[in-house]
Design a binder for these strands. Structure first.
Lengths: 333, 333
DNA sequence: CTGTTAGCGCCTTCAC
DNA sequence: GTGAAGGCGCTAACAG
């Protein structure tokens, strides 16, 4: 049997308002009546009807986490980070994948934000359309974006320092390893992470007085097969690169597979480096040189900023937190 | 501005009841009035207040997914599978980790099930206490358990065929590879997956007329370090095993690390096999021999059964779906 | 400090 | 087919 506030009130011989107040720690109730109400509630194993409470309070105690897809480690780690912070803040986490469909994102966004089905939102994306930005700014609920900066008011952004990571890695390849012919397998052009990594690659060359052969830049899709295809393209060029910097580890793995089928050895025949430092990287042989991203921290930071924003009375201006990356040495370069 | 059903009613010059009916596809409304209401709702960009609807309908359109932790691939894949099925069924997925705490599980369970904060529940666990079973059976909401069989009425179970997988793998090691001294690094004794895998290992020996040296069975914790520690133990025995069957791939990786530090090579000095076929397994060198588990299918199946149960008018008896496993050959044995 | 009262927005009987 | 009215359980003024 599920008891309601009314039954507790009858039993305690007080009004339902008093019960509500006692159970919500309203300071105005006398200590003794509060104790009475609480003890009866416990005796009855009373639990407030969350749905009713959400309705009248116009809030749900739920954080929405929208991501384009749930595929690799990156997403798990983010979910994990968000969930742990949300959980300790008394919130639940509603996870939604848009299955990489723009329309789906808009729908989900609308469903989540309308009438506060969620109290706050974390959006993981690197491809914000104007329609989505509009939806976000009109939603009226606290939002934190991981990835691209939407440049919206009162919206926090967690950015991964892609540029710096790529710049450092490529500089290392040039300075320490002495490579001058470094190819790049870029990510999808519409992905801002990918764009920034490419810029780091280009700038490092420029700062070291090297020119990049345009044929050495090939687009990939952040997947293993696309990495392998890019590898094949690069190694079929008349002027082959000495090293390949893949914009993520998955594509670097594709290079390993390509090298394997070509009978080439890494790094003797061609050096390979990646980005992300996903779990498998350390088990590749040779160990992949890559750029480490503290992913769980990304999720935690996002959730922390969001909770802060949700719990704040006053309006908070947009904040930008850059998560710094670190080079991970390996024998693949 | 957020419109309510009342405003739509005024504008359409009908009652709010008619609006409600029209918007919920009640057959009784005349086609023309329904069309009118729908067009006005669209014009007003009306969206029902989900919180109010949830409250009055006593349901939330949310599926709860409770897992002990969100750590590796296994959990991501399950989330992914569940989310995709839930999404296409019009449900949202609320993910909660209990951070491996029994108390936390009970709390989460209570919060989720009470007054239908979630309409259905998927519980991923291999360690069901009586209190939790009681909570599940009393909850009154549709439940699907992944892992251990709680043997409750009207509760579906998704079981991974651990026993068969382990049995096949160990039989292969004995028959095809000719090993007779096979050690086992078991999982936590309270974990039913672990127990079943161990039974498969033992039974395979018995069926082939081999006796197992008790020292060759060591407990682990399903983690890399515990695998490495177990490896060290095993390889310090006077009578060393020829092969090691680890109850999961993470512990098998621990064996690789141990072998590395001992300067032993796999499989020449000692063969290694695992269970799960996680993503990294194929990148270990030599490629790990293991047992593949179609994890995303586990999540999808769980969600499918749950939706089926939630959408069914009549009561459905408990169902047990066994997800079969398959041996994955590798050069590590 | 506590009780009374009025909703919150929607769904759903019960009449017509 | 449609309308009127009641209520879901809780919170939040407004009185006292």
């Amino acid at each position: 049997m599920d008891y309601t506030i009314k039954e507790i009130a009858e039993r305690a011989d007080v009004s339902i308002a008093t019960v509500s107040r006692a159970l919500n720690n309203d300071k105005r109730v006398k200590a003794s009546t509060k104790a009475l109400v609480v003890s009866i509630a416990r005796e009855f194993n009373y639990r407030p009807n969350i749905l009713a409470r959400n309705f009248v309070r116009r809030k749900s105690n739920i954080i929405g986490l929208i991501m384009p897809d749930i595929v690799d480690e990156f997403f798990t780690e983010v979910i994990k980070g968000v969930e742990s912070v949300a959980h300790s803040g008394g919130y639940f986490t509603l996870v939604a994948s848009t299955h990489s469909r723009e329309g789906s994102l808009l729908e989900t966004l609308a469903a989540f934000t309308h009438r506060r089905m969620v109290d706050g939102l974390i959006l993981l994306t690197t491809n914000l359309s104007p329609a989505i930005k509009k939806g976000l700014s009109e939603s009226g609920i606290p939002v934190v974006v991981i990835g691209e900066n939407p440049e919206l008011k009162e919206t926090d952004v967690i950015a991964i320092d892609n540029y710096q990571g790529a710049y450092s890695l490529v500089s290392h390849l040039i300075n320490k390893k002495g490579y001058t012919k470094i190819a790049h397998i870029a990510g999808p052009p519409e992905n801002s992470d990918a764009v920034q990594r490419k810029q780091g690659y280009l700038q490092a060359h420029q700062d070291h007085g090297l020119t990049v052969n345009p044929h050495w830049i090939v687009d990939g899709a952040f997947t293993i097969p696309s990495g392998e295809a890019a590898f094949r393209r690069l190694m079929s060029l008349i002027q082959k690169p000495e090293a390949i910097f893949a914009a993520n580890d998955m594509m670097a793995i594709g290079c390993y597979e390509g090298a394997d089928s070509f009978g080439l050895s890494i790094p003797e025949d061609v050096a390979v480096a990646g980005f992300d430092d996903i779990f498998v990287s350390r088990f590749l042989s040779p160990r992949l040189m890559t750029v480490g991203v503290p992913i769980a921290e990304v999720g935690k930071t996002a959730a922390t900023l969001l909770l802060d924003r949700m719990n704040s009375e006053s309006h908070i201006a947009s904040r930008l937190v850059t998560i710094s990356t670190g080079m991970v040495l390996g024998q693949s370069s």
